[in-house]
């Protein structure tokens, strides 16, 4: 075994020269997930553009990001180099988990990307449009089963908002939670449920292949190159995007906040960031400063009210 350790040691030492960190980005999720990929894309971009010499990513998974958030708030107070990636899912998770730490305790910098939530049915389904779905919901809300990600997440919230907007009772939403969009995809493809609701990218290849029919996307504007109406166009007054953001540590000075914001803005406008978004199929929904703060407050309020109506938060 010693030989292998030696070999690994040598190859490791050759392959990866080490740096001292400048920014440390916390991804409050396991490696491989959306937040982790966002953090690692930021890492590549910040380094490639020379904005920061050395960036390290740490993963603190668990409970919709609230464990990472709590650790970030407790340990990074006033640290100018500490950043955390987060997103809309965190808003719901903070409420349903009754998290002791909230997004008020970090310093939001900017919204970076956003993804539309797609509402799909199997190709063989009788539902042809959002109108059909609305009619089915009004007729018998419980008979429409929705497959999506974990309870209280963006998918569940959107299902609740749609049900409420078409005039049905949101407490009756028959939402079947799966541990990831992927497992929900299998349930929709297998015809186990009526509707699938999850991030557009989860369903994209099946929609292209004609296995799933895309009824609508949840964003306020249409998704480029995707032939589907928005919910608003279909007469359902709901606009949600599953956004991801970057935030800085609590207790930093205004100058420090301005410096970080400038670095992030530079990164977002860089060629490498744009190329990375393109290759991953993410949509740039950059929004910074007070506009982002206002949107955040609005999202938190809307989420709290629908989670109360569904009965997940009391």
């Amino acid at each position: 075994m010693n030989k292998f350790i030696l070999a690994a040691l040598v190859s490791g030492a050759l392959a990866l020269p080490s740096f001292a960190a400048d920014y440390t980005i916390m991804a409050p999720a396991a490696p491989g997930g959306g937040w982790d990929q966002t953090a690692r894309t930021m890492q590549e971009s910040l380094q490639a553009e020379g904005i920061s010499g050395n960036v390290q990513v740490t993963n603190v998974p668990g409970a919709g990001g609230t464990i990472g958030l709590a650790q970030f708030v407790n340990q990074s107070n006033g640290d100018r180099n500490a950043l955390i990636v987060g997103g809309y899912v965190m808003v719901g998770a903070i409420l349903t988990n009754a998290s002791p730490v909230t997004l008020d305790q970090v310093t939001p910098i900017a919204r970076l990307t956003g993804e539309a939530i797609a509402i799909v049915v199997p190709a063989s389904s009788a539902l042809q449009s959002v109108d059909d779905l609305a009619a089915a919901l009004k007729e018998n809300t419980g008979a429409v089963s929705w497959a999506g990600g974990s309870a209280g997440g963006a998918d569940h919230i959107t299902a609740g908002l749609i049900t409420k907007a078409v005039g049905a009772d949101p407490t009756q939403v028959n939402y079947i939670a799966y541990s990831g969009g992927g497992e929900a995809l299998a349930a929709v493809l297998g015809g186990q449920v009526t509707v699938g609701i999850s991030g557009y990218s989860e369903f994209a290849s099946q929609i292209e292949a004609g296995e799933l029919r895309l009824l609508a996307v949840s964003t306020a504007e249409r998704v480029p190159n995707v032939d589907a109406p928005t919910l608003k166009e279909s007469g359902v007054d709901v606009a949600v995007q599953n956004w991801r953001m970057v935030a800085a540590a609590p207790g930093i000075t205004d100058e420090q906040k301005a410096a970080i914001s400038a670095d992030i803005e530079k990164m977002v406008n860089s060629a490498s960031w744009k190329a990375a978004l393109e290759s991953r199929g993410w949509v740039n929904t950059y929004l910074a400063g007070d506009a982002f703060k206002a949107q955040l407050t609005e999202d938190i309020a809307a989420t709290e009210s629908i989670l109360r109506e569904i009965g997940l938060v009391q």
């Binding site: 690994a8 040691l9 190859s11 490791g12 030492a13 392959a15 990866l16």
Partner: peptide
Amino acid sequence: WFIFAKGLQ
């Protein structure tokens, strides 16, 4: 530590 933290991140 060196192998896993430095070599394999």
